[in-house]
């Protein structure tokens, strides 16, 4: 009687073991899948370190009509995936458009927060923040007079052709040198507002014209 019983018991135990192995197996596979998914999630949530950088470059942004809207050259360009921003060292920005007077800008650092759907909140227009030793020059043109703006910070909204700052600023034109704190300039309407502490120094007429500050 004994051996028969052990065969039954053996078969039962075998079933139990088999069952155990399959459940353990599924749990194990589930675990692997879950961990793999996490890694994927980590990588796409964009680490803060730059994911690419470019050196000695010329970045040209085309406007909707396909013409060059503005182009930026610089020593180095670094892309930060988390904010989808571009940081440029010693940028030179030249915007030129037939119907708008050209503008030349220089600064120590530019942070371009470009149109992007990756970030929340979604950005629907370009913002170019310029920091330290910022200089904006517009040459004498048919419809525009020479203007040279210097400040420590300028915010550029190329789509609306607006340049603004809340920092102290100095503006030199052929006839006058003005300083103020805070400025809002619309390049297409050529309208410029100085927000506070305005000081305008009209050049003497007989004196030699204001020496061109490079």
């Amino acid at each position: 009687m004994k051996p028969q019983m052990t065969i039954d018991r053996f078969r039962i135990w075998l079933a139990v073991i088999l069952l155990g192995i399959t459940t353990m197996g599924t749990i194990w596979i589930m675990e692997v899948i879950r961990r793999h998914a996490d890694d994927e999630q980590n990588r796409s949530s964009a680490r803060s370190a730059p994911d690419y950088y470019v050196e000695k470059f010329n970045f040209i942004r085309l406007s909707n009509n396909g013409k060059a809207n503005y182009h930026i050259t610089g020593d180095s360009l670094v892309h930060l995936p988390r904010t989808d921003n571009i940081e440029i060292k010693h940028p030179q920005i030249n915007s030129f458009d037939q119907d708008r007077p050209p503008l030349h800008l220089r600064a120590d650092l530019a942070v371009v927060a470009q149109k992007s759907t990756l970030v929340t909140p979604k950005r629907d227009h370009d913002e170019v923040h310029l920091y330290d030793n910022v200089s904006m020059e517009r040459p004498e043109g048919l419809s525009s007079q020479f203007v040279h703006v210097k400040s420590d910070y300028l915010l550029l909204l190329p789509d609306e052709d607006i340049v603004k700052t809340d920092k102290p600023i100095s503006i030199t034109t052929g006839k006058a040198t003005s300083t103020a704190t805070g400025m809002l300039a619309n390049n297409s309407t050529q309208h410029l507002s100085l927000l506070s502490k305005v000081r305008i120094q009209l050049n003497k007429r007989e004196a030699a014209p204001a020496v061109k500050t490079k």
């Binding site: 419809s143 525009s144 007079q145 203007v147 003005s178 103020a180 309407t189 050529q190 309208h191 410029l192 507002s193 100085l194 927000l195 506070s196 502490k197 305005v198 000081r199 305008i200 120094q201 009209l202 050049n203 003497k204 007989e206 004196a207």
Partner: peptide, 19 residues
């Protein structure tokens, strides 16, 4: 008459087209 003119104000606006 041969000194420069200095104008100061709290707020300023300038229109490039009509200066």
């Amino acid at each position: 008459s041969n000194k420069e003119t200095i104008i100061e104000a709290g707020y300023g606006e300038s229109d490039g087209k009509t200066s």
